[in-house]
Each structure stands twice: as C-alpha cells, then as structure tokens.
Amino acid sequence: MAEATLKIFRGTAERSEYQTFSVPTYQGMVVLDAVHDIQAGQAPDLAVRWNCKAGKCGSCGAEVNGNPRLLCMTRMDQYPAGQPIVVEPMRRFPLIRDLVCDVSWNYEVNKRIKPLAPKPREADGTYRMQQYDIDRVQEFHKCIECFLCQDVCHVMRDHGKYDFAGPRFMVRLAALAMHPLDTVDRLRDLRDAQGIGYCNITKCCTEVCPESISITDNAIIPLKERVAGEFYDPLAWIWRALRGKKADTRNPVH
C-alpha cells in the first residue's frame, strides 16, 4: 500500500514544531482522513476542528502546502508522491493549538453590520419579490463561513489592517445591499467602518472559496462601485440632484 508523508504543525503560539508522519493512502483519501489516521494511531492529542466532512460546515479550514483549503475537500492524490504535504493552521487567526485557531474575531465583525430591515409588508400582509430580484443575492447565500477568504486576504494577513472587515463580510454586505426588501443604507459604514477601500481586488479570496463564490467580481467590486457613486463621483451627485434625490435614499440606521 502506498504511503504519504505529512508534515503537520503542532503546538501553540508560544512553542511549536512541525512533526512528520507517514500514513497509508487509499483511493479517494482526503487530507482530513490522513489527519484522522494520525490522530487514531500516532498522535491522539493532535487538535483539529472538523464536523461534517462534506465541505458544508466550514470547520476544517487550514493551509495545505501553503494554500488555504478545507481539509475534507482536499484530495491527497493531487500532491506529488514522495514529497511531504505540509499542513498548518490558518495564519490569519490567533492559534489555539495545532490546527485549531480562534476565529471569533469574525463573529465580532459580523455583529457590527446593520442587519436586514425589510420595508413594510404589502396590504395583504405579504412581501412580494420576483426571481430576477434575487438572482444576484442567491450566490452569496452559499457562503459556509469557513473563513478561508479571511485567512488568505493579504490586507489582514500581510499588512495587519484589521479595520478591514474582510471578504466574507463584503459578501454579506453585498447580499444586504442587493436585497430587494432591505431599507438600510450601509455605504458610509462600508467606506469607514468596514474599510472597503483597503481591498485592492487581487482576488485571492475568490481563488480559495470552496463554494466558488465570485467574491471579488460579484460582491466587492459592485460594492466599490456603489461607494464610488455615493462619495467620489461628481456626475452622480449632479444626476441625483437633478432628479431630486438625496445620496442616501434608503432609511439610514446609525
């Protein structure tokens, strides 16, 4: 039976090391299988967060050979035989132990986003919308919050700009901005509190998204365009003035 070698990060932020393990491989094996084999036979104290093993819970995010990946969706046979596969925790977040990090920062950022505030119901007590109203938004709801996009984003990863909310929350903000029932204006927050200007659209978030959401093209760039129209486009100001519209046409909640 063929064997694979894994070089796995072990330890805490204070003291850590890379440990090398050999595991027998089989058809269809994923990196999480290998980690579980190591846990079962060689290192029972190896910490790894996982849940569904089907690419839907977003728990097992880590870095495999430097690339942010879901361990459960990363096939072993895509890596060349004979070379060790390096498995590390996500670098962006504080390390708890081994492959597990503390991603709670994301939940704090999420709390600061103004939630959906739907417009009043119709006279019959319902909301009405057409399929073509929500075609754009449905893609964003595929997000499983694995935070791989947050991990790979160089704004935080390399430059330490944590006042940027990150790609995952640009997706959420785009879903809210394009929601046909929503009444809240978030453009000023998007510019100031969520720091959309930090993004230089280098698209790493899109490259690592396991749900293949076009984060940059469909969420971040449309939001940047909206911010540009609101704050940086004199023609848009004139156009709005001629049509008698204020810049913030939605009900601002501050």
Binding site: D158, H159, G197, Y198, C199, N200, I201, C204, T216, K224
Partner: peptide, 29 residues
C-alpha cells in the same frame, strides 16, 4: 488590470499566500 499590476509590479501580494512586499499599505484609499 489593477489586480494584474498590483500583483506583478507592486507585489502586494505577488501571489496568494505568498508574503507581500513590506510597505505602508493603504489599499485603494
């Protein structure tokens, strides 16, 4: 093209998961 030259010329970042050039980063602000 912004993506292209930020990666190729500004090296911010040169590629995903590759250390970026040290700089006072302000993004597109």
């Amino acid at each position: 093209y912004r993506k292209a030259y930020y990666r190729a010329f500004v090296l911010s970042p040169p590629a995903c998961s590759v250390g970026a050039r040290p700089q006072r980063y302000n993004g597109e602000r």
